[in-house]
Design a binder for these strands. Structure first.
Length: 225
DNA sequence: AAACTTCCCAACCGCCTGCTC
DNA sequence: GGAGCAGGCGGTTGGGAAGTT
């Protein structure tokens, strides 16, 4: 038994939006605002489902959207954020005013992935591909705790991402998908004992680049400045 | 110039979450 | 507490544009 569709799609138009449809949607939202997306197509005189209208507005028609190519600086920041947040596109997009999650996701899939592959880096972990193979054959949670305390260090990797290194020369970038305990890194800081799901929550609470740079400082020095 | 291939991105799908009753 | 609904999110797809043969 499948899930109920978001609306009755019979008689609804799909595919590319026309200029007339865009104009109707823009006019409606400018004059009435958005109360309930489900009602928008009906009230605006569109043969579309509410979800489609919402997507069209948020990804294309919104007046505050920044159009055009992403700069190299923006691209670098996306890579940096991806190493911290993984495929949480909306979280990543929230750091780029005027950019949408869809735009960043598309850019990642079509451009940045290629760029990382050319550099010989894994597009999920941001590690050098050889290291990914090494890591796949070992469980990071089985690493001896004492050894970690002695030998772990945290630094920024070549992409600006954060790396966790151990004596065995295996390095791990921070990604919510990798449950690596980093308590030995922060020493007596309040991050002690935290795992990466906590980190993801912490990063979620960041509202500016200063926050992220602060995190990088913490990780680089192994304690709070 | 035509046919074919590859690339890119807007749009869709379905699951998840949070809110209301 | 749980059912129903709407909005949000991430993965995927389809079609047009651009590039190549």
């Amino acid at each position: 038994m499948g899930r109920q569709p978001c609306c009755d799609k019979t008689g609804l138009k799909r595919g590319q939006w026309t200029i007339e449809e865009d104009q109707k949607l823009i006019n409606y939202i400018i004059n009435n605002g958005i109360q309930c997306w489900r009602l928008v197509p009906k009230l605006a005189g569109l043969m579309r489902c509410g979800k489609s209208c919402r997507l069209r507005w948020t990804n294309y028609l919104r007046p505050d959207l920044k159009r055009g190519e992403l700069s190299e600086t923006e691209e670098d920041r996306i890579i940096q954020l991806h190493s911290l947040l993984g495929n949480r596109w909306s979280k990543i997009a929230s750091h780029f005013p005027g950019r949408t999650d869809n735009e960043i996701k598309n850019h990642w899939n079509t451009r940045i992935k290629k760029r990382l592959k050319l550099l010989g880096l894994d597009t999920v972990t941001h590690l050098v591909v050889d290291n990914v193979i090494d890591m796949a054959s070992s469980n990071p949670l089985e690493v001896d705790e004492e050894e970690k305390k002695e030998d772990n260090e945290v630094s920024l990797n070549c992409n600006g991402g954060v790396e966790w290194k151990s004596r065995s020369s295996c390095s791990t970038s921070f990604s919510p998908d990798h449950a690596v305990n980093i308590s030995s890194v922060e020493g007596d800081s309040c991050y002690e004992g935290s795992n990466l799901s906590n980190w993801a929550d912490t990063i979620d609470s960041f509202t500016s680049w200063e926050d992220l740079y602060y995190l990088e400082d913490v990780l680089s020095f192994g304690k709070f400045p």
